[in-house]
Design a protein around this nucleic acid. Sequence first.
RNA 1: GCCGGCGUAGCUCAGUGGCAGAGCAGCUGAUUUGUAAUCAGCAGGCCGGGGGUUCGAAUCCCUUCGCCGGCUCCA
Length: 635
Amino acid sequence: MNITLKDGRVANYSFGATPLEVARDIAPRLAKEAVAARVNGRLWGLGQPLAGDAALEFLTFEDEDARLVYRHSSAHVLAQAVKRLFPDARLAIGPAIADGFYYDFDVPQTFTPEDLERIESEMEKIIAADLPVECFELPRDEALELVRGEGEDYKVELISGLAPDAVISFYRQGEFTDLCAGPHVPSTGRIKAVKLLSVAGAYWRGDERNKMLQRIYGTSFPKAALLKEHLFRLEEAKRRDHRRLGAELDLFSFHDAGPGFPFFHPRGMVLRNELERFWREEHAKKGYLEIRTPIILRRELWERSGHWEHYRENMYFTTIDDEKYAVKPMNCPGGILVYRSRLKSYRELPIRLGELGLVHRHEMSGVLHGLIRARCFTQDDAHIFCRPEQVEEEIVRIMDLTEYFYRQVFGFEYHVELSTRPEKSMGTDEMWESATGALVRALAQKAVNYKVNEGDGAFYGPKVDFHLRDCLGRTWQCGTIQVDFQMPEKFELEYVGEDGQRHRPVVIHRVIYGSMERFIAILTEHFAGAFPVWLAPVQARVLPITDRHAPYAREVTETLLRAGVRAEFDGRNEKVGYKIREAQVLKVPYMLVTGDREAESGTVAVRHRSAGDQGSIALNDFTGRLVREIESRAR
RNA sequence: GCCGGCGUAGCUCAGUGGCAGAGCAGCUGAUUUGUAAUCAGCAGGCCGGGGGUUCGAAUCCCUUCGCCGGCUCCA
C-alpha cells in the first residue's frame, strides 16, 4: 500500500495500517499532536485502518474538522460517564458544536450542578484510563437488536430513520458503546482538559411536541492552558454584553413594569438618534421617501393582510369604542394604505416608502434577551412598490446598501441566509417560485455565499436575511429582504401601465439595521461600548484640574458645544486622575485636561480613551480635527 | 411556553433557622489636586411579591413575578 504524505513523500505500508502508525514513524510528536487524519480528502480516524493506496494528511486541533472530532469524542466520554453514574439514562444525540459539545439524555431525575461535578470527575477517570476507541459495523437488523437490547429507544428511532442501505457503525470504549458515524480519536486519553458548562432542556429532535430531554453542554481542549484561555474569553465576552454595558453606560434599562419593553435613557437616545440621522441621509440619497403610520389599527385590516390568520399569537389586541383593534406587529399594512391612498402611474415606480416603525410582538417569555429580543422595537422598515421586472434590480440595490452599512460604515462581518416557503403560508406555488427566483438571481448577481433555510420564510413571501454576531458569537438576524406577491393581491394594489391598463405591483419589504434595538445591542457588543466618535453619547469631557481652571474649562466646553460637539464639563471637586478614570470607564473618546498651562496658551491637553495622552494642542485645532472626525463618521 | 439556575442597598456580592452586612455609587464636610479611584462622616433594606411551617424565616416548603443559560419560536 503506497501512502502519499502531504509533503509528497511516499511510504509503503502493509494493508490495514492505521494513520497513527504512520504518524509514529514520522515523529512521535506528530503522533501525539494529531487529532484526526484526512485520507483521500475524507475525514479519517487515526486508529481507522487504511485500505489501499492513499493520500494521507494529519490534522491537529488547529484544524476545524479535527476539533469537531475531538469534541465529538469528548461527548462520548460524557455519555459514558453519565451511563456509569445514571444507568437509567437513555442516550439521545451528542454532537460537537462550535466551541464544544453537548449530549442529550433522557433521565428520570434532573441533573444538578453537583451532578455535573460528579460527571466531570467520572469523565476524568475515563480519560485517565485511556480506553481505546474501537469502531465496528453491523447490518441493520443486528444494529437494531443491539440498541434494543440496551433499551436505547432513541437510538432505535435513529437507526430506523437511516437509509436501508446505510452502513451502521458503532464506537466502543471500555464498557460503553454508542451508535455513531465517527470518526473519533483513537483513545479516551487524547482528551486532556474537559469542562462541563451547563445543563439545559432540549426537545427530542428539536420539536416542542416531543419529550424534553436534559442537555449537558461542555467543552474540551488538548491542553489545560487552552481551556483556561477559553473560559477567560467567555468571561471577557460577558463584559461586552449589551445588557451589562447598557446599564453601566446609562444607555437604557428594563423594568418589571414592562418585561421585554426597553426604556431608552438620554445617552441611549443620542446613539439611536445618530443612527437614525445617518439612516435618513443615506435613504434620501437612494430615493426613499419617509412615512409614519399608526401603531393601532382595526382588526379587519389584519384579517385582510393575513396577519390575523398567520401571526395572531404574536399580536396584542385592544378595543376602542366597542370596536376591535390590533397593535401592529409589522408595518406593511400601514405602508400599503399609504400607497393605496392615490392611484399610481408606472412612471412613479418604484416607490420606496421608508418608515422607522414601532412594532409590538408578543414574544414567549423565555426568549427575551435585552435589546436583542424585545417585545417592542423599531424597524428601519421600507416597502418598495415596483413593477415585476424591477424586482431584481431593487433587491440588488438593497443588498448594496446593506453591504455599505454593515461592512463599510460599522465594520461588521455578516452572513446571508435564504429562507423559503413555510408550511403555514399563503399564495400560489407559482408566486413563491417567482419571488424566490428573484432573490436567488440577485444573490447570484452579487456573488454572495448564502445558506438556505427551507421553510423559514415569512408567511407572505421568501426572504434573504443578513446575520450579525453578538459578544458570544451567537448570530442574530438583522437586515432582511422579503419579496411579496400576497399583500398586493390581498389589498388589490394597482398602478396604471403604459398601456393604460391596471397592473399589480410587487412589494418588497426590507430592513437594513433590522431593528434599532437589536442593532444597538450588536453595535454595543461589537465596540464593547467604545462607540466611534460620531455615535458616542459624549464625545469629549473637559476636566479642569482645580476650581481656578473652571472658567477656562467652561469656555472650552462652550466652544465645543457651539461647534456641534457633544461635550461635558466635569467641574467636580476631585483629582484629575479620578475624573479621567470615570471618563475612561464611560468610554468617552476624548478627555481634555485644562490647567494653568492650557489656560495661558489657549490649548487643551488631549487624552484619547485608547491612545492615551496626546499632549497639548490649540483649542481651535482640536475642535476642527474633532469636528472632521465626527463628520466623516470614521470608525 | 418548556427545562435548569438565580433574585439581599442604585451596582457587585457576603450572610443556611436566632440583632440584616461589606465594597463601590449617593449625600455632607475637609482637601485645590497634571493623565485610571484623596480622606472622614452620614444616609440607604417589605432580603422580588403572596401564602405556609416554626416560639422565631433572608435562610425551610408552596405559589407567583422577574432575570440568566438553553430548547422551541423570531427583527
